[in-house]
Design a protein around this nucleic acid. Structure first.
Lengths: 346, 346
DNA sequence: TTGTACGCGTTATCAA
DNA sequence: TTGATAACGCGTACAA
């Protein structure tokens, strides 16, 4: 087993000083051609690579980005990570991942763990619990310590930082308008409670679309699902809620669901009630994941372009990190959604 | 903006030496009650946290695990990551993620990047390209440098290290046996080319199951899909191949597919050919992801327990890292598969 | 052309 | 009880 070789060892072997080795390896012209060759040959032989940790300590930057997301087993978030990783790697950064598991405490702990020197900045999406408690002190503290944050998808106005979001409102409007123009007259929405900003915005988009088409919103058409943190055990509860939405609106002919799972559940319930899709009822979801694509019938959705969100977030963060002037001008980038029409709509 | 405070700054403020501060904070009883209190109060006020990078440099360990996987937008791999993260965090480790994107070069580059001090050890699943080229020098070199590796799922015998695998062969046998006992007599298999070890083993399991039940394997029933790295653009090709499998075996009444996508494609083709599932043809997949669960009809699958694989891999790695004696006794842990029966089988 | 000294932030050892 | 010093690995300003 040959341990990693250091400058010191090379210096000792070749009987020169450490700094000579260092300079020779960095092709400094201070060093004679002769020794440079000698050093480089030796270094190559022993496969010398500078130690990242030492460099980090010296340069006071780690070239590493910390990602905090609520959940990784999730098509959208993994796409975002892929986007981040893509850009980060291209620009010489690594990516370290922390999961909050939708818990406030885990979010805080994870951030503290990483903030102590391990990373140069954060890209994160806020956990539901944090949104609920509205306690954002860990974000402000991090930013105050000079560590930049880029938030995506689930963001809050209270924090002043770069943000990458989807035009949730517009996306929802697009979806609902599509349903209307395809002939739907009684459109239900399956959404989340309002503390999830994206849910709120999508609900608002739904309402605005109705309004623009002079349709009156009815309370009975709006289902705000009681949140069980989307735990897998609560599919049954969700199904019951959706079923009651269908039952109290016998003439339902369109559904806008704010995520894939809700949309799929709607399909399931529709099937159970012997409604044909899209003949009797049309359905549109939000977030274009594998489920929508492979569902039968395949699901029309509003695609969020998760990967692009990740790429943009990484760009913003790295630009900020590498900016010379310390101006704190924060941007909010809006990624356009796209309506992907499939078989669940006419 | 209050920058992160260091020992040096505290020392200066309180007009004591750095080492006194360090000791005081670590509750050394060398330090008088008085100064200890003073220092601790000050540190608390300024929210002092030791710098991870400095600690890493000093201790020559980073308390960070490097994960290299071929693809993150993948239910199985993200489950594994979750498992790793869970155990790692519990034991005070962070997790840094690199994606090979199924490419040999990216795998090598990513590993080199991380191996230079950023992490203490690797958990990885080999990229397809690497498996194809059978070039494993980067693994051996890493191990030779004293950096432990734990491989999962896609492993190779050539490398001597800890491994966590699924009983692919047994899992496949279980699945095919189930099909047989449910009355199937002409069971096709949709699998990968043999260089993917898991595909090979699952194919073998299929053959052994047939043999045990005195059924003769027929070449026409075996479809080894031409690999397009599962790129999303090649779904059509896949579908065509599956279709020809169906067409050249008119009496097909069972399908064992070695992954979710293949299974779903089989369902799609079956539907196209007006075969009822499970009445006319029964289907079992491998890897229990969201697709199987939410498919219609829902898909019977062999679950791999991705999270458990991740947990076990993390345990193996950390145990190795924290082991006092330097004995290199490598383990191969086999995680049991489980047949999850759903609607696609009788 | 080469080497010395210093600093990044921390801890451990030893001296005062 | 406290402090100075060395070390982890590197790069660089400055001295020789």
């Amino acid at each position: 087993m040959k341990r990693k070789v250091t400058l010191k060892q090379i210096a000792k072997e070749l009987d020169v000083s450490i700094s000579t080795v260092s300079k020779a390896l960095r092709n400094s012209k201070e060093i004679s051609e002769d020794t440079r060759q000698k050093v480089q040959a030796f270094a190559k032989l022993y496969n010398y690579r500078p130690n990242n940790i030492a460099l980090s300590l010296k340069n006071r930057k780690t070239k590493t980005i910390g990602i905090i997301i609520p959940e990784i087993v999730h098509h959208f978030f993994s796409k975002v990570i892929r986007g981040i990783e893509l850009v980060a790697n291209k620009r010489g950064y690594n990516v370290i991942v922390g999961l909050s598991n939708e818990s406030f405490d885990k979010e805080v702990i994870n951030m503290e763990m990483l903030a102590n020197g391990s990373i140069d900045g954060f890209i994160l999406s806020i956990s539901k619990e944090t949104l609920q408690q509205q306690d954002y002190h860990h974000f402000t503290e991090t930013i105050n310590q000079g560590m930049p944050i880029v938030m995506f998808d689930r963001v809050v106005d209270a924090i002043n930082c770069d943000k990458v979001i989807v035009d949730d409102l517009e996306g929802a409007k697009k979806a609902v308008s599509k349903l209307i123009s395809s002939g739907c007259e009684n459109i239900g929405i399956i959404t989340t409670r309002d503390y999830v900003s994206v849910g709120k915005l999508r609900t608002q988009g739904y309402l605005e679309a109705l309004e623009e088409h002079k349709m009156n919103p009815k309370a009975s058409l709006i289902l705000k699902v009681v949140d069980q943190l989307l735990s897998e055990d609560h599919l049954d509860l969700l199904e019951k809620e959706v079923e009651s939405l269908f039952k109290r609106n016998k003439n339902l002919d369109g559904i806008f669901a704010v995520n894939e799972l809700y949309a799929l559940t709607a399909m399931k319930v529709a099937r159970k009630m012997h409604l044909r899709i899209p003949e009797d009822i049309q359905i549109i979801g939000f977030t274009d994941g594998v489920l929508s694509k492979h569902a039968v019938p395949s699901l029309t959705t509003v695609s969020q372009h998760g990967q692009k969100i990740g790429e943009k977030a990484a760009e913003l963060l790295i630009n900020n990190l590498e900016r010379e002037d310390e101006e704190d001008i924060y941007e909010t980038v809006i990624i356009e959604t796209e309506l992907i029409e499939r078989e669940s709509t006419k």
